[in-house]
Simulated assay, not measured.
Amino acid sequence: MEEITAPGDDEDEDEQRTYTRLLTAISDYRRRHHRAGPDVLGPRPAGLDGEEWDHLTDAIDLYTHARVQRRLEQIRARTTAQLPPTSPLRQQPPPDTNRPGPRSPGR
């Protein structure tokens, strides 16, 4: 569970609540399935328990991804703020290619 990064003191309340809910759900799962050790959820079980495992695994992945994205944005903003105004590195970041938008006519 140490691998799931806790929000810092400067994070908003929603971030704190999300983190707490995630850890509570994981702890509840571990208790009900008698899991212990460093592997957060253990191997994927069969049946309905497997669906719960999938849901928790996805939640962990999404939470971790969001934390990494937020931290990268903070680092980029801090770095950009420290550059001289005339620096060519102060250009706008490229558009996010993962966003939905118009597709090329060939698709």
Rank of each mutant, 00 (worst) to 15 (best):
R32Q: 15
Y19H: 15
R32Y: 09
T64V: 13
S27T: 14
P105W: 00
R44C: 14
D61A: 15
P85S: 03
P7L: 00
E3L: 05
R99L: 15
R90M: 04
I75G: 07
T64F: 05
Q82K: 06
R30S: 09
G50E: 01
P7Y: 00
A77K: 05
D12Y: 00
G42T: 03
A81G: 05
D96R: 05
D54P: 05
A6T: 04
T18G: 08
T64P: 12
T20A: 09
H34M: 12
I60D: 14
D61R: 12
P7A: 00
H65K: 12
I75P: 07
R30F: 04
Y29K: 09
L23T: 06
Y63G: 13
H65G: 14
I75M: 10
T20D: 07
I4N: 10
A77M: 05
D54F: 01
Q82T: 11
T20C: 02
R71K: 10
R99M: 12
H65N: 12
A77I: 02
P105Q: 02
V40T: 15
S27F: 06
I26Q: 03
I4H: 04
Y29I: 10
A81P: 02
L23D: 03
Y19N: 13
A77S: 10
E51N: 04
Y19L: 11
T79D: 08
R107I: 11
P105I: 03
A6M: 03
R44A: 11
Y63D: 12
D96K: 02
L83M: 08
H33I: 01
S87A: 03
G106F: 01
A59I: 02
P85E: 00
T86A: 10
D14L: 06
P102H: 02
R30E: 07
I26K: 01
I60F: 07
R21H: 08
W53S: 08
D12N: 06
G106V: 02
Q82W: 00
A77V: 07
R32E: 15
E11H: 07
R35H: 02
R30D: 08
A36T: 13
R71Q: 12
R35P: 05
Q92M: 05
